[in-house]
Design a binder for these strands. Structure first.
Ligand code: SF4
Ligand code: SF4
Lengths: 163, 163
DNA sequence: TTATTATGGATATTACAGGTCTGTAATTAA
DNA sequence: TTAATTACAGACCTGTAATATCCATAATAA
């Protein structure tokens, strides 16, 4: 029950992209150095993000990556789901067990009527939990973090992106 | 980002224990058959639950397992944490990267002052999400599910545990 | 064209979930 | 006390996913 390192990298890469909108795009080299991870591996992650419309990529000289949409429209949930996949947290395996009969109540009077809705009581709880989590993750975007970082650094004022 | 099958089994085992308080304890054999899983594997899971004070176990003839405390005091969070471990969902790896400097703000004026608190903005979001999840899982107990199951089955009335 | 950069596939490595087997210890019935 | 029963702990195997590297190819700009 842990997020993968890939998710970690993806988030940091996006934060970097969102923070340095100076010209246009950032090369994989710069990203890899900044995050402290190999270019090969990071490029895989960036590809996923591109395929899902989170970033745009241009090959060739002076190519690189840029955010495909405003940073405040890229939620944590988006990133996590792209990298980790969209499978749900709890997926029951043994729907044939005796337990199932008791809890999901498919074998009684009502028959198959309720088969489509999430009638299983265990899954119902788990699904609710997942919704809670998603709701929170959806309310936090890349921009959220950038804003907070800038706010906190206002005293220091490094003038890093004035250039 | 998925719960393991072991968690699935643990939950179902506890539900079975909570539901059949007829005499005292239920043997691993009955549990395994009910859940449709091997005794060997299930016993591992039950051991974990015992070590954490969720269930009690007695060896010997007519031995078996029983809940160590009322079913309404065993939360989903308890079970999950016992089986999955108590590691947090997001655990940062590269605290040495350049990214870290920007986001965690350890290298500026304030120095190491804020090192102990969760000053990292990424972790802060993830930690918040985890809290949301935990809060929900803590509000749902084994008893919750059993109650709902009984309530739903009142029309059918199978008299299964009259015996 | 040529240098540069991202992309996709193939491959290696490692970690771990899932699962089995076996011998041992504890308990009770006889 | 003996024997049957049951849980317990550990060693062990296996398949799969995460992590990571390498290379050949395609696309782009100068
Ligand atoms: S009751 Fe729910 S979780 Fe249990 S076996 Fe049936 S579908 Fe799966
Ligand atoms: S900013 Fe937070 S998540 Fe990023 S490297 Fe530092 S501690 Fe880790």
């Amino acid at each position: 029950m842990q997020f993968s390192k890939s998710t970690d990298y993806a988030l940091h890469a996006l934060l970097h992209l969102g923070n340095s909108e100076r010209h246009n795009n950032v090369g994989i080299k710069e990203l890899a150095v900044t995050l402290g991870v190999s270019e090969s591996y990071l490029s895989k992650i960036m590809s996923k993000l591109r395929q899902d419309g989170i970033v745009r990529a241009v090959p060739g000289v002076n190519g690189g990556y840029e955010l495909a949409k405003p940073a405040d429209q890229i939620t944590f949930l988006d990133v996590i789901q792209v990298i980790e996949g969209r499978q749900q947290m709890f997926e029951c395996s043994n729907t044939n067990s005796q337990q199932h009969q008791l809890l999901a109540d498919e074998g009684t009077d009502q028959g198959h009527q309720a088969r489509r809705g999430s009638e299983c009581l265990v899954e119902k709880v788990m699904y609710g939990a997942e919704q809670q989590l998603h709701q929170y993750l959806q309310a936090h975007t890349i921009q959220t973090v950038i804003d907070e970082a800038l706010k906190r650094n206002c005293s220091g004022n490094h003038d890093k992106n004035k250039k």
